[in-house]
């Protein structure tokens, strides 16, 4: 797959605090890429460097295979930290400024305002907007001028549950339109629902990056139970692919890679053990995330 952004060895420190440590990864075209990490893990610093708002101490990045950075940014819609607009201007006037900076026509201003449900308020001053409306306007701003990439930092900040679901829907729509979406968030559930790829940061270090499936399925867990727990335990330890066996609450857990339920069932049956319970517990992002961020504690 074509690479839309490649990041190599980016480092950045604020005084003695190292916000990013040699972070490298690539964002494939057309992906919905989640940058994950707890608060203070360096997500916003990373995105700010990619938008030339902050200067990296070392390392580099390339948009669209090495396009000039300002030309690239004109094709990137972005929302960083807070919605940044002229308070005394109307929503429409604010978007007109962005359109001019992007050197795009003003013809799609109405379209993007419609998309975020602010068309009726287009002539209202930004300072009269609620937090949720400001956030929507920022998303409209990011969608202006048919961007190739949309970069969103905590896009659901300040939105109510309906608003969050709406943003999620919009991210899916953008993705279907072929827009690459890069999104930073600490809300794992949100990321898991929309992202195809993730990079997980902790204290400025990249813990893992790749497609959501790869990141999650590297480690499977199968929960089983039978009448005779002890012989079940002894048996499953000999199974291929099983790296570890644990028990809890009367269940036996198999850990390993690419565990096949049918295979496990068949093997137990052949040894005369009848399973009363067999569930594939795929890890969700949250479990994985907690595990990753705690291991390096």
């Amino acid at each position: 797959m074509e690479t839309i952004l490649s990041i190599q060895q980016l480092s950045k420190s604020y005084g003695t605090i190292q916000a990013l440590k040699n972070v490298s990864f690539e964002v494939p075209a057309g992906s919905v890429f989640g940058v994950l990490g707890p608060n203070g893990s360096g997500k916003t610093t990373l995105l700010a460097i990619l938008l030339d708002v902050l200067n990296a101490d070392s390392g580099h990045y390339a948009w669209f295979g090495g396009s000039d950075a300002t030309v690239a940014r004109k094709q990137i819609g972005s929302l960083l930290e807070t919605p940044n607009f002229y308070h005394y201007l109307s929503a429409r006037n604010n978007l007109e400024i962005t359109a001019s900076i992007k050197e795009r026509g003003k013809d799609d201003i109405e379209k993007v305002l419609q998309q975020v449900g602010l068309l009726e308020r287009q002539h209202s001053l930004f300072q009269t907007f609620s937090l949720g409306m400001k956030q929507r306007l920022a998303i409209a701003n990011a969608l202006l001028g048919n961007p190739k990439v949309v970069l969103l930092d905590e896009p659901t900040n300040g939105l109510d549950p309906a608003g969050i679901a709406e943003i999620r829907g919009m991210i899916k729509t953008m993705s279907n339109m072929g827009i690459t979406v890069i999104m930073a968030s600490h809300l794992l559930d949100e990321v898991e629902k929309v992202c195809t790829h993730v990079a997980i940061l902790k204290r400025g270090e990249l813990l893992v990056s790749g497609s959501v499936n790869d990141v999650l399925s590297s480690d499977d867990r199968v929960e089983i139970q039978s009448e005779d727990i002890t012989s079940l335990q002894t048996l499953v330890q000999q199974f291929p692919n099983v790296s570890q066996v644990t028990t809890a609450d009367g269940f036996v857990y198999l850990h390993g890679k690419e565990l096949n339920l049918a295979q496990i069932n068949k093997q137990c049956m052949e040894q005369g053990i009848i399973l009363t319970h067999l569930v594939h517990k795929k890890k969700n992002l949250e479990t994985k995330f907690m595990e990753l961020t705690q291991i390096t504690e």
Partner: peptide, 20 residues
Amino acid sequence: NEYQFRTHRQNIMDGWSRLS
């Protein structure tokens, strides 16, 4: 105002160079 509204950042993010 640009600093207060953080539009100095947004102008850059939207495609101006710092020099612009």
